[in-house]
Design a protein around this nucleic acid. Structure first.
Lengths: 208, 208
DNA sequence: ACTGATGTTAATCATTTGATTAAATCAATT
DNA sequence: AATTGATTTAATCAAATGATTAACATCAGT
C-alpha cells in the first residue's frame, strides 16, 4: 500500500491529469456544455476513470470551481486590507495581479461571471469569510481622499472601475481580436500596456 | 384559414409567447443549460409546440441570439460614425444607451460574452458588415485629440474603457449586490449615477 | 510465484433530452 | 352541422449522457 500524495517527483499522476483536463474543459465550456466524455478524451483516459477518482461530474466541477474562484478572488483582500501600502500602490498591485494572472488564465473571467449569474447564493457562502471590501483599508483610504478633495463618490464605483477596466477586456478578448484583426501576442501586449495605463487613468478619475 | 401575422391587437400570439419564454430562459441560462422542456414550461405550452413553431432548439436559439446581438451591438455604429456629434457627446450617448438598455435587459452582457467565447467565428460573420470601429468618425476624432494633446494612446483602449466601465458592472451585478448587501433598486441607482460619472471619468482619462 | 490493493478498461444501465407522430381540439367557412 | 385547415396535446422514439459494473492489468510486499 502507498499513500497517494507521495509521488510528487513522478510524471504527473493520473488524478492530476484528469483534473487538468477538467479544468481546461470546464473553464472554457462551462458546466452544462461539458460532457464527462469530453474530459475523458481531453485527459486521454477512459470515461469510468473520472468517476473512479472524483465520484461524479458535479464533485469534479466543485473542485475546479473552488480553484478558479481562489485564482480570481484569493488575492484581493490581501491587497485591499494592507495598511502599509498607499491607495495608489493598491491600485497598481490589483491591476498587475489581474493582468498577469489573466494572460495565463484567459478563460477565468467568463467562467466566474457564469458562476455569479447561475448560483449567486451558492457563491455567497463560499467567500463571505473576512472578505468584505466595504470595511477594508482600501475603502478607508479612498474615503479619506474624497474628504480631502471635497468630492463624494461611492467607494464601490472606484472598485468597480478598477475591476471593470482590468477584467472586461479579457472576457471580450475573442471579439476584440476578431474585429480588430489582432493577434494573441498583440492583444497581450495591449493588456500589458494597461498595467501602466489603468493606474494612471484611475488616478485621473480620482482627481489625483 | 387565417394569416399568422394579422393578429396584432389580440393577446400575444402563441408563437410570441414561446419566443418570449425562450428569450427569458436562453438569456439567463445559456444554450447548453436550457432544456426545450424549460421553454415549454416557461411558456405554458406543450413541448411539441416549440418544435411545431420553430423546428428545433437550435433554430429558436438562433433567433434569440440575433435579437440579443442586435440589442447589444445594433446601436453602436450609428453613434460612433455620426459626423455631427463631438467625441464627448458620443461618449455620453454610448453610456446612456447601454445603461438604459441593460437596466431593462440585465442578462444580456453574460449572454453575449458566452457567445463571444463559444463561437467567435460564427459571430464574426454575423456582424462584420459596415461595423468597423477602427474606421469610424469616433476614432478619427480621438486621434485628432491625441495629436493635439501630444499623447499617444491606441483608440482601442478608449473604446474598451467605455464599454468596460459601462457593461461589466451589469455582468457582475449578482455578486456586487450580494457582497455589498445592495437591493436591486439601489444597484440600478448606482448604474444611473454612472451615466453622468463615466463620461466625466473618460474625459479625465483623456486629459480633457 | 502468490496475494491483495490499486489502476484501467469495455460493456452496459437508467435517465434525460431533442424530436416526431398521430390523434384531439378549435375556429372559420360553407 | 359538416368541412377544413391551423393549433395543441399525449405518447413515444432515438440518441446522448452520467454513472455503474465486472473483468482485466499492474505492481508492491511477501
Amino acid at each position: 500500500m502507498m499513500k497517494e500524495k507521495e509521488d510528487i517527483g513522478k510524471s504527473e499522476s493520473t488524478e492530476q491529469k484528469i483534473k487538468e483536463a477538467a479544468r481546461k474543459v470546464f473553464t472554457s465550456k462551462g458546466y452544462a456544455a461539458t460532457r464527462t466524455r469530453d474530459i475523458a478524451e481531453e485527459s486521454g483516459f477512459n470515461l469510468a476513470l473520472i468517476n473512479y477518482y472524483f465520484r461524479s461530474k458535479e464533485k469534479l466541477f466543485e473542485i475546479i470551481m473552488l480553484e478558479n474562484l481562489q485564482l480570481f478572488m484569493g488575492s484581493i483582500m490581501g491587497i485591499l486590507d494592507e495598511p502599509a501600502t498607499s491607495l495608489e500602490e493598491k491600485v497598481d498591485l490589483l491591476v498587475t495581479y489581474y493582468v498577469d494572472m489573466l494572460i495565463v488564465n484567459p478563460g477565468i473571467p467568463v467562467f466566474i461571471l457564469n458562476l455569479i449569474n447561475n448560483n449567486p447564493e451558492a457563491l455567497k457562502e463560499k467567500l463571505d469569510r473576512a472578505s468584505l471590501v466595504a470595511n477594508s483599508v482600501f475603502v478607508k483610504q479612498f474615503q479619506e481622499l474624497m474628504k480631502k478633495k471635497g468630492m463624494n463618490i461611492h467607494p464601490l464605483h472606484l472598485f468597480m472601475n478598477i475591476i471593470s477596466l482590468t477584467v472586461f477586456p479579457f472576457a471580450a478578448a475573442p471579439m476584440i481580436k476578431a474585429k480588430n484583426d489582432i493577434s494573441d501576442e498583440a492583444f497581450n501586449q495591449l493588456m500589458l500596456e494597461r498595467k501602466k495605463l489603468i493606474p494612471m487613468w484611475v488616478k485621473a478619475m480620482m482627481g489625483v
